[in-house]
Deep mutational scan, measured.
Amino acid sequence: EKTLKIVADSEEEAEALAKELAEKYNLEVTIERNPEEEGKYVITIKIKP
């Protein structure tokens, strides 16, 4: 299993990107607040072998 993390500037941007990735590529995608940067969100994508 591989994990890729993407940082987005807004929750709306994160949700839109996560939804597109999940639907288009059938990936497991989660969104959470970035504890290191206020106002940023981390999109985590898990790629199963």
Results as ranks from 00 to 15, higher is better:
residue 34 N to A: 09
residue 23 E to V: 09
residue 36 E to A: 09
residue 49 P to Y: 15
residue 24 K to S: 04
residue 5 K to N: 05
residue 9 D to G: 10
residue 32 E to C: 10
residue 49 P to W: 15
residue 7 V to C: 15
residue 14 A to S: 02
residue 36 E to I: 09
residue 26 N to P: 02
residue 48 K to E: 05
residue 43 I to G: 00
residue 45 I to R: 00
residue 12 E to M: 07
residue 26 N to S: 10
residue 36 E to P: 04
residue 5 K to E: 06
residue 15 E to Q: 13
residue 48 K to V: 09
residue 39 G to Q: 04
residue 22 A to S: 10
residue 44 T to A: 03
residue 26 N to T: 04
residue 16 A to H: 07
residue 49 P to R: 12
residue 33 R to H: 07
residue 47 I to P: 04
residue 10 S to Q: 01
residue 47 I to D: 03
residue 46 K to T: 11
residue 5 K to R: 12
residue 18 A to G: 05
residue 49 P to H: 13
residue 28 E to F: 10
residue 31 I to C: 04
residue 26 N to F: 06
residue 23 E to H: 12
residue 38 E to S: 11
residue 43 I to E: 00
residue 11 E to W: 14
residue 18 A to N: 01
residue 48 K to N: 11
residue 27 L to M: 11
residue 37 E to Y: 12
residue 28 E to Y: 08
residue 6 I to E: 01
residue 39 G to P: 03
residue 28 E to H: 12
residue 4 L to N: 03
residue 14 A to W: 02
residue 8 A to D: 00
residue 6 I to C: 05
residue 32 E to L: 10
residue 1 E to V: 14
residue 38 E to L: 11
residue 32 E to H: 10
residue 7 V to A: 08
residue 35 P to I: 09
residue 9 D to L: 05
residue 22 A to D: 02
residue 7 V to M: 11
residue 32 E to V: 06
residue 4 L to P: 02
residue 13 E to P: 00
residue 6 I to G: 01
residue 6 I to R: 03
residue 22 A to C: 07
residue 47 I to Q: 05
residue 41 Y to F: 11
residue 45 I to V: 11
residue 2 K to G: 11
residue 28 E to R: 06
residue 39 G to T: 05
residue 45 I to G: 04
residue 12 E to S: 07
residue 8 A to G: 02
residue 19 K to T: 06
residue 4 L to E: 03
residue 37 E to W: 12
residue 15 E to C: 13
residue 37 E to D: 10
residue 22 A to R: 15
residue 1 E to I: 15
residue 36 E to V: 09
residue 26 N to W: 08
residue 8 A to P: 00
residue 34 N to G: 09
residue 47 I to L: 14
residue 44 T to F: 14
residue 31 I to T: 02
residue 32 E to Y: 14
residue 46 K to A: 06
residue 9 D to S: 10
residue 1 E to G: 14
residue 41 Y to E: 00
residue 40 K to W: 05
residue 39 G to I: 02
residue 28 E to K: 09
residue 38 E to G: 14
residue 6 I to V: 05
residue 44 T to K: 06
residue 27 L to S: 10
residue 3 T to H: 06
residue 15 E to L: 15
residue 2 K to D: 08
residue 3 T to V: 13
residue 25 Y to V: 01
residue 48 K to Y: 13
residue 42 V to P: 01
residue 18 A to P: 00
residue 6 I to Y: 15
residue 41 Y to D: 00
residue 12 E to Q: 09
residue 21 L to A: 02
residue 10 S to A: 01
residue 1 E to L: 13
residue 2 K to S: 11
residue 5 K to G: 02
residue 38 E to V: 08
residue 49 P to A: 12
residue 31 I to F: 10
residue 42 V to G: 01
residue 2 K to A: 14
residue 20 E to I: 14
residue 5 K to P: 03
residue 49 P to K: 09
residue 35 P to F: 11
residue 3 T to K: 06
residue 21 L to Y: 12
residue 25 Y to G: 03
residue 25 Y to R: 01
residue 46 K to D: 03
residue 29 V to R: 00
residue 21 L to R: 00
residue 17 L to H: 02
residue 28 E to D: 09
residue 33 R to F: 08
residue 20 E to W: 15
residue 44 T to V: 13
residue 30 T to A: 06
residue 27 L to W: 10
residue 48 K to Q: 10
residue 37 E to H: 12
residue 45 I to N: 01
residue 26 N to V: 03
residue 23 E to I: 12
residue 14 A to F: 01
residue 32 E to D: 09
residue 18 A to H: 02
residue 1 E to A: 13
residue 39 G to R: 04
residue 33 R to C: 05
residue 12 E to L: 06
residue 5 K to S: 09
residue 11 E to Q: 12
residue 36 E to T: 14
residue 25 Y to A: 02
residue 34 N to H: 15
residue 20 E to C: 15
residue 21 L to M: 09
residue 44 T to S: 05
residue 14 A to D: 00
residue 2 K to V: 15
residue 4 L to G: 03
residue 8 A to Q: 02
residue 27 L to C: 09
residue 31 I to S: 01
residue 6 I to F: 15
residue 7 V to T: 10
residue 26 N to C: 10
residue 35 P to G: 09
residue 23 E to W: 14
residue 17 L to G: 00
residue 5 K to Y: 15
residue 16 A to R: 11
residue 12 E to V: 08
residue 42 V to K: 02
residue 26 N to R: 10
residue 20 E to Y: 15
residue 39 G to D: 04
residue 46 K to L: 13
residue 33 R to T: 08
residue 9 D to P: 03
